[in-house]
Simulated scan of single mutants.
Amino acid sequence: MVRVAAVDCGTNSIRLLIADLADGQLTELDRRMTIVRLGQGVDATGAFAQEALERVFAATEDYADVIRSRGVSRVRFVATSAARDVSNRDAFLSGVEERLGARPEIISGDEEAELSFRGATTSLELPTPYLVADIGGGSTELVLGDRDGVIAAQSLDIGSVRLTERHVTTDPTSPAELAAITRDIDALLDTTTVPLAEARALVAVAGTATTVAAVALNLPEYDRTAVHHARLTTGQLRETSTWLTTSTRAARAAVHSIHPGRVDVIGAGARILQRLVDRLPVETLTVSEHDILDGVALSLGS
């Protein structure tokens, strides 16, 4: 058995998982998430904002304290969409390494997709092949696979933060803005090399999907246990997505199951999920709390 720590820094949040790993199975000890909005303004400027870096560094310091206190033997820190093409990524890499003692890895979209697939599908019983959809702040990973592994995978540059910053200026989102978001989503889904029509089940992971599920289930507050492996019908998804994309910011903020850091971007994220489901031959989707973070932790055993 080895005690591992996985850190995933995305466009909107940074997350930590500490677990004991034995025989390819994880026993979770600590899991936490902090909204840092690392991708703030990146779509427009091509660089990390200084205040965004400071938020990431503060969260990293907190995580480093937890990792040390838990007696972790192996640590892996991965960064995804927001960190791939920015002009000042060296400041990000060195700042994290200074605080954590581990050098961040900026992983490719393909590796991100494979890690998400591995984390989401361990011990999952669904018809195959299944499609894993990881909707993040800056990108969306689509992975088709079965129990033997990945068949096809692709990372698309559509995410909740990216699309919100690019198109949304009104509250609530105007029909014209929603139409622009939808055009961007459809344009990239039209080009995907992943054969969506072959999917027999959909597994949706990460904050957009879990938040949509919490709202659809009318949870009084976010409940990870209730969300994990929840199944939503396409009708439930459509109703929830419509509300999230047309409601005011204040109305969304009043829903306690929506994390405050997701209130302003969840509409665009829900729209991505809806447009994806519209293309799939499925009647339900399964939401998983296990995702790339679990995949990163599992990778520390090899």
Rank of each mutant, 00 (worst) to 15 (best):
N88E: 09
G101S: 02
S108C: 11
E125S: 15
V255T: 14
T34S: 10
V96P: 00
V255W: 05
I266T: 03
T211Q: 01
L188C: 05
A206C: 13
A204Q: 11
I258D: 06
A44Q: 15
D134Y: 02
A64F: 00
I67P: 01
D186Y: 03
V263C: 02
T80N: 06
V287H: 03
V215M: 00
G24D: 04
V227C: 03
A201W: 08
G119Q: 11
R162N: 07
G101W: 02
G235C: 05
A64C: 01
E111P: 05
V150T: 14
A297H: 01
V168A: 06
L196T: 10
A206V: 06
F117E: 08
V72I: 13
G101I: 02
D278G: 06
E125P: 02
A213L: 01
R76V: 03
S13T: 15
F57D: 01
G269R: 02
M1S: 14
A82N: 06
A214P: 00
I272Y: 13
L273P: 11
R262V: 05
L17F: 01
W243Q: 12
T182C: 10
A102N: 04
V36W: 04
I14Q: 15
E28L: 13
A199R: 09
A226N: 09
V277R: 10
G71W: 13
